[in-house]
Design a protein around this nucleic acid. Structure first.
Length: 469
RNA sequence: GGCGGCGUAGCCGAGUGGCUCAGGCAGAGGUCUGCAAAACCUUUUACGGCGGUUCGAUUCCGCCCGCCGCCUCCA
């Protein structure tokens, strides 16, 4: 298996720390606002990667945190007149719900920063002892970037280059403009924890260093996140994790591309974004996942309604195929879509080989979707030719590929009242057709289409189904 | 200014030094149908510009143009 490693600036062969095992840490959300499609893309991208690793037989430990103590959370709490903890818990739930709806698997461990302050304090202490950190006159504990030789190795910047663009806020008392806070002294009314340097709270970067080491080990295999976290967040994680003991922090770094909306990056801070909730009100989770999978995870994704509409049509096509195949095999369509593995058959070997080859090459999901659509086309062709013998192997392969992609839509919830009404309507329409009253038959079909129900005539009688938009 | 990415057919989006091709969506024609739909088959001046390397470049190199990201909180 090969993957693109950010510090190596290229695709490298993956070698696990322990054979058969992969420990993975992906930076989770700061829970102060609803997540947007940028977060969704990042989460779906890593979900695709994780599901594939599991599919490929790795024993994966997937850890993703909640940053639940932060300036923005505190500011939000102040604005709303509630506690910081209340804000964090609220948006944690919003995040979980969004992830569930996007069919993103929950992490094996989802640690909260506030539950790991002790480990952070211990890490800061060791950095102070090793001379990599100092207590500033303002009472903060700062990391001295010049004390760490490798600073800049992830983002490929020299300290000099970075220095030129660095800003210093008044009152920070930094020895170097690039030095960053490991521990912030408590201000009036802020959440705080006891420490050797007085009450305070952890800096942003230290939590990930502490939690990743706690749950994934030191070192661990793969660290992931959005590409906008490369600097300074991940660069700083490396510095503070490696400076004290010289042990490598994460062995491979994976970064996902940004999502653009109308030509500019989505960003919570600028208000230029489409929330996951709003997106899901208009588009199906499967269409959003397909859109994400059809673009390589490292590339920028330019989001637009027209784009999801395309994906929606493609997802619809997969759903239609499932129904046709189920009928051809005499299976219940809903059961087939809910549990495609019902067709107990060996997945078609050629497709599986193509799928694995694609995913082993830096998680090439665009090629994997091509494999899926090739299977859909072959399954449809088999139904057309009435060659159902090869169908189970094709469906098993589709199920296998979809165990990673998760783009086959689940069956619509059964609405028996609608089904009864439709039975009557189609019966009346059939009577009109038999009487060659095609005007009436077509009018019924057209009106149903307007109501979002398509009607298809076939030798076995008319079939109907609800259309996605 | 420093670091990095991208520019591929109507749209989105993979990929490759020459060989038949990614894939999806849309459009056109065909099969099927009372007409449709679905499905299948066929199909639509493709590789930003200018040079260079090469027997041969969309693919490698250089320059230019355009777009985007990071360098500050950010998925």
């Amino acid at each position: 298996m090969r993957l693109y490693d950010t510090p190596a600036r290229g695709v490298v062969e993956f070698e696990p720390l322990r054979p058969g095992h992969i420990s993975m840490y992906v930076c989770g959300p700061t829970v102060y606002a609803p997540p947007h499609l940028g977060h969704g893309r990042m989460a779906i991208s890593f979900d695709l990667i994780r599901r594939y690793l599991v599919f490929a037989g790795w024993d994966v430990k997937f850890v993703s945190n909640y940053t639940d103590v932060d300036d923005k959370i505190i500011a939000r709490a102040r604005d709303e007149g509630v506690s910081a903890d209340a804000v964090a818990r609220k948006y944690e739930a919003v995040w979980d719900d969004a992830m569930r709806r996007l069919r993103v698997m929950p992490p094996d461990v989802a640690p909260r920063a506030t539950d790991h302050v002790g480990a952070m304090v211990a890490l800061v202490e060791s950095l102070v002892e090793s001379g990599n950190a100092y207590v500033s006159t303002s009472g903060d504990v700062l990391f001295s970037v010049r004390s760490f030789d490798g600073y800049g190795k992830l983002s490929h910047q020299s300290i000099e280059d970075l220095d030129a663009g660095a800003r210093v806020e008044p009152g920070e008392h930094k020895r170097d403009p690039l030095d960053f806070a490991l521990w912030k002294a408590a201000k009036e009314g802020e959440p705080s924890w006891p420490s050797p340097w007085g009450p305070g709270r952890p800096g942003w970067h230290i939590e990930c260093s502490a939690m990743a080491a706690t749950y994934c080990g030191h070192p661990f295999d793969i660290h992931g996140g959005g590409s906008d976290l490369i600097f300074p967040h991940h660069e700083n994680e490396i510095a503070q994790s490696e400076a004290a003991d010289g042990v490598v922090f994460a062995r491979y770094w994976l970064h996902t591309g940004m999502v653009n909306l109308e030509g500019a990056k989505m960003s919570k801070s600028t208000g230029h974004f489409l929330s996951i909730e709003d997106a899901l009100a208009r588009y199906s989770p499967e269409a959003i996942r397909l859109l994400v999978a059809q673009t390589h995870y490292r590339n920028q994704l330019d989001f637009s309604p027209a784009l999801v509409a395309d994906s929606e049509a493609a997802v619809d096509r997969i759903a239609t195929m499932c129904e046709r195949a189920a009928e051809a095999l005499g299976l219940d369509a809903a059961t087939l879509r809910a549990a495609p593995a019902i067709v107990a058959a060996e997945p078609e070997a050629g497709a599986m080989a193509a799928f694995q080859a694609a995913m082993d090459d830096d998680f090439h999901t665009p090629a994997a979707t091509a494999v899926l659509f090739d299977l859909v086309k072959r399954a449809n062709a088999a139904v057309d030719r009435d060659e159902t013998a090869e169908l189970p192997a094709l469906l098993a392969a589709i199920a296998a590929v979809d165990s990673v992609l998760q783009v086959v839509p689940p069956p619509a919830r059964g609405d028996t009242a609608l089904a009864d009404v439709m039975e009557l309507v189609l019966e009346l329409r059939q009577r009109a057709r038999e009487e060659k009253d095609y005007a009436t038959a077509d009018r019924i079909r057209d009106r149903l289409a307007e109501a979002g129900i398509s009607v298809e005539d076939s030798p076995e009688g008319a079939k109907w189904r609800r259309r996605r938009r």
